[in-house]
Simulated scan of single mutants.
Amino acid sequence: MNNKRLIKNLDFTLIGVTAIIIIWSLIVIGSASTDYGWWMRLGFDMNKLQEASVFQRLLWMKKEFVYKQFISVLIGTCAAMAVVYIPYEDWRKYTKHLYVINLLMLGSVLVLGQTAMGAQRWIDIGFFRFQPSESAKLIIIIVLADFLANKEGKLRNFKELLPCFVYVGLPMGLILLQPDLGTSLVFTAILFGMLFIASSKPLLITGIFSGGLAAVIGLVWSHLKFGTWIPLHDYQLNRLIIFLDPWSDIQGAGYHVIQSQIAIGSSGLWGKGLLRGTQSFLEFLPIRHTDFIFSVLAEEFGFLGAFLLLCLFAVFLYRGVRIAAESKDLYGTLIAVGIVSMFTFQILVNIGMTIAIMPVTGLPLPLFSYGGSSMVTNLLAIGALINIYLRRQKNIF
């Protein structure tokens, strides 16, 4: 492989936008993880803490999260570079093995996994906590792309589509058992995004999706009205619907959303300044370095900062769509579409839940929220996109 030609044909727009988002995320994670309450408990005066300079606040920052995230970025970057070198067409030889490995990893979580915040999602391997459901998203994209490419021109009715739902339903079911509703919904977005491209009748896919969504809404309404059974615990259902009226449970399920709205709504045009967000400063905003990282960004950088991040994500997704459109084969197109579907869904849901227009599902903001497994998986996905872009023309090397 000609390294000079490889470098020349890289998608520098995608790489540049990704780098900007990640660097910015490290800054915001540092700000979000600063524990001023700890300093107050040591007897430091609140007024002096609030009047402190940015430099002084940087000294108070809990750098552990930033260091760990930076290490995850390095690992993910190296892994992505390795992915770029292996022609994506060769992945089709191992999709069956990947599918089985994926099921084994997800199944092992139910036996060996550690529990945190009511969910059993992590496997502790000593120096690193691994979340198989994160890597499962990328694996299902790669194996489903091969599954659908082999059925090109054959997906014309529901009967022919049914095996696709079963294929994705097995790993999705294991994720639901953890329970991890948010990630299982990502699987749904990936499945329908890829089916829309693979099926010869996209209107059929749209109809199935609309019908399924209507059925879910109807089932939830029936449960609330008549007590009909649904496969969710009450606390899970409450988290899903609390965005409709977070003030109905101020100290409970609605607390996160309310504090997020206060943080974003009080930011103004320019924001309150780096490390000066009061909701983060006074620790009102919970899990602010993961699920609600966008709230911290908006509070400190204001409307313009939030808008800039959305623009960066828009460019990122646009490049993903272009790569899908320019792929030389259906397999590459389906992988790119699956990755774009994954990122788009998580971005919309995460930002939507911070402003109370989407359910609180616990999904991280891609490339921005703290989380090693998520960051590595996202960078691997970007490596896959670059791989497809490099080989968009036959015999490019």
Results as ranks from 00 to 15, higher is better:
residue 5 R to P: 10
residue 5 R to T: 11
residue 8 K to N: 14
residue 9 N to A: 14
residue 13 T to C: 14
residue 14 L to G: 02
residue 19 A to Y: 06
residue 20 I to M: 07
residue 22 I to E: 00
residue 27 I to Q: 11
residue 28 V to K: 09
residue 34 T to N: 05
residue 35 D to V: 09
residue 39 W to V: 12
residue 39 W to E: 15
residue 41 R to V: 07
residue 41 R to T: 11
residue 42 L to K: 14
residue 42 L to E: 15
residue 45 D to F: 04
residue 46 M to N: 10
residue 51 E to V: 06
residue 51 E to T: 09
residue 53 S to R: 12
residue 59 L to H: 05
residue 59 L to M: 11
residue 61 M to N: 02
residue 68 K to A: 06
residue 69 Q to V: 08
residue 78 C to L: 10
residue 81 M to V: 14
residue 89 E to D: 09
residue 93 K to C: 08
residue 93 K to W: 14
residue 99 Y to M: 07
residue 101 I to Y: 03
residue 104 L to E: 03
residue 108 S to C: 09
residue 111 V to N: 08
residue 124 D to R: 10
residue 127 F to V: 13
residue 130 F to A: 08
residue 130 F to Q: 12
residue 132 P to M: 06
residue 133 S to V: 09
residue 135 S to L: 15
residue 135 S to E: 06
residue 136 A to W: 00
residue 138 L to C: 04
residue 138 L to E: 02
residue 140 I to Y: 06
residue 147 F to G: 08
residue 151 K to L: 13
residue 154 K to F: 13
residue 158 F to T: 15
residue 171 P to E: 05
residue 172 M to E: 11
residue 175 I to S: 04
residue 175 I to R: 05
residue 177 L to E: 03
residue 185 L to F: 08
residue 188 T to W: 13
residue 190 I to Y: 01
residue 195 L to M: 12
residue 202 P to K: 12
residue 206 T to I: 15
residue 207 G to Q: 09
residue 208 I to N: 08
residue 212 G to D: 05
residue 215 A to Q: 10
residue 218 G to V: 04
residue 218 G to C: 04
residue 221 W to A: 14
residue 222 S to F: 12
residue 224 L to T: 01
residue 227 G to T: 07
residue 228 T to P: 04
residue 230 I to M: 00
residue 232 L to Q: 01
residue 237 L to H: 00
residue 242 I to Y: 00
residue 245 D to E: 12
residue 247 W to S: 12
residue 248 S to M: 12
residue 249 D to K: 04
residue 256 H to T: 06
residue 257 V to D: 01
residue 257 V to K: 01
residue 258 I to P: 07
residue 260 S to D: 03
residue 261 Q to N: 12
residue 264 I to T: 04
residue 271 G to S: 03
residue 273 G to M: 06
residue 275 L to W: 03
residue 275 L to K: 01
residue 275 L to A: 10
residue 277 G to D: 01
residue 284 F to Y: 13
residue 284 F to V: 09
residue 285 L to W: 05
residue 286 P to E: 07
residue 286 P to W: 05
residue 286 P to R: 04
residue 289 H to C: 08
residue 293 I to A: 11
residue 293 I to P: 15
residue 295 S to T: 07
residue 299 E to N: 05
residue 299 E to R: 02
residue 300 E to Q: 14
residue 304 L to V: 15
residue 306 A to H: 02
residue 308 L to K: 02
residue 309 L to W: 03
residue 312 L to C: 13
residue 320 G to A: 12
residue 322 R to F: 15
residue 329 D to R: 11
residue 329 D to V: 11
residue 330 L to I: 09
residue 331 Y to A: 10
residue 340 V to F: 11
residue 343 F to T: 02
residue 343 F to V: 12
residue 344 T to S: 15
residue 346 Q to D: 03
residue 349 V to Y: 00
residue 349 V to H: 00
residue 350 N to D: 01
residue 350 N to V: 02
residue 358 M to A: 01
residue 363 L to V: 04
residue 367 L to E: 00
residue 372 G to T: 07
residue 373 S to M: 13
residue 373 S to C: 13
residue 376 V to A: 03
residue 377 T to D: 04
residue 378 N to F: 03
residue 380 L to I: 08
residue 380 L to G: 02
residue 381 A to T: 05
residue 381 A to M: 13
residue 386 I to K: 04
residue 391 R to Q: 14
residue 393 Q to M: 13
